[in-house]
Amino acid sequence: QTVHVKGVQYHFPNPEEAVKFALKVAKDLGGRVEFHGDEIHVE
């Protein structure tokens, strides 16, 4: 599972961890989380 944050990719073997990370980052940055297939983008 890959999380993209402002052009940087973070790889997580566990999808659940990836989602938790993405939600935390989005909250910290005041952004939103978008799901694109296997990828999660924080915009």
Results as ranks from 00 to 15, higher is better:
residue 1 Q to I: 15
residue 1 Q to A: 14
residue 1 Q to M: 15
residue 2 T to S: 07
residue 2 T to E: 03
residue 2 T to L: 07
residue 2 T to V: 13
residue 2 T to C: 09
residue 3 V to M: 01
residue 3 V to T: 01
residue 3 V to Q: 00
residue 4 H to I: 14
residue 4 H to R: 10
residue 4 H to Y: 14
residue 6 K to I: 07
residue 6 K to Q: 12
residue 6 K to H: 13
residue 7 G to C: 10
residue 7 G to R: 04
residue 7 G to A: 04
residue 7 G to E: 05
residue 8 V to E: 08
residue 8 V to M: 11
residue 8 V to F: 09
residue 8 V to G: 04
residue 9 Q to L: 13
residue 9 Q to A: 13
residue 9 Q to N: 08
residue 9 Q to K: 14
residue 10 Y to W: 06
residue 10 Y to D: 01
residue 11 H to L: 08
residue 11 H to T: 08
residue 11 H to R: 09
residue 11 H to F: 13
residue 11 H to Q: 08
residue 11 H to V: 09
residue 13 P to N: 13
residue 14 N to V: 05
residue 14 N to I: 06
residue 14 N to Y: 05
residue 14 N to S: 13
residue 14 N to E: 06
residue 15 P to M: 15
residue 15 P to W: 15
residue 15 P to T: 14
residue 15 P to H: 15
residue 16 E to Y: 10
residue 16 E to C: 13
residue 16 E to W: 11
residue 16 E to T: 09
residue 16 E to F: 09
residue 17 E to N: 05
residue 17 E to C: 11
residue 18 A to Y: 01
residue 18 A to N: 00
residue 18 A to R: 00
residue 18 A to D: 02
residue 18 A to M: 01
residue 19 V to G: 03
residue 19 V to P: 03
residue 19 V to F: 14
residue 19 V to E: 08
residue 20 K to M: 09
residue 20 K to V: 07
residue 20 K to E: 12
residue 20 K to C: 14
residue 20 K to Q: 11
residue 20 K to D: 11
residue 21 F to H: 05
residue 21 F to Y: 07
residue 21 F to T: 03
residue 21 F to M: 03
residue 22 A to M: 02
residue 22 A to L: 03
residue 22 A to R: 00
residue 22 A to W: 03
residue 23 L to N: 14
residue 24 K to Y: 05
residue 24 K to W: 07
residue 24 K to F: 05
residue 24 K to N: 09
residue 24 K to D: 10
residue 25 V to I: 13
residue 25 V to W: 10
residue 26 A to E: 01
residue 26 A to I: 05
residue 27 K to W: 08
residue 27 K to G: 09
residue 28 D to K: 12
residue 29 L to N: 06
residue 29 L to D: 03
residue 29 L to C: 14
residue 29 L to A: 05
residue 30 G to S: 06
residue 30 G to K: 08
residue 30 G to D: 07
residue 30 G to C: 13
residue 30 G to R: 07
residue 31 G to Y: 13
residue 31 G to S: 05
residue 32 R to D: 04
residue 33 V to G: 01
residue 33 V to A: 04
residue 33 V to Y: 03
residue 33 V to Q: 01
residue 34 E to L: 13
residue 34 E to R: 13
residue 34 E to D: 07
residue 34 E to A: 11
residue 35 F to C: 13
residue 36 H to T: 06
residue 37 G to R: 07
residue 37 G to D: 09
residue 37 G to K: 08
residue 38 D to T: 12
residue 38 D to I: 09
residue 38 D to V: 10
residue 38 D to S: 12
residue 39 E to K: 06
residue 40 I to T: 02
residue 41 H to D: 02
residue 41 H to W: 14
residue 41 H to T: 07
residue 41 H to R: 10
residue 42 V to M: 02
residue 42 V to Y: 02
residue 42 V to W: 03
residue 43 E to T: 15
residue 43 E to R: 13
residue 43 E to Q: 11
residue 43 E to C: 15
residue 43 E to W: 13
residue 43 E to I: 15
residue 43 E to H: 14
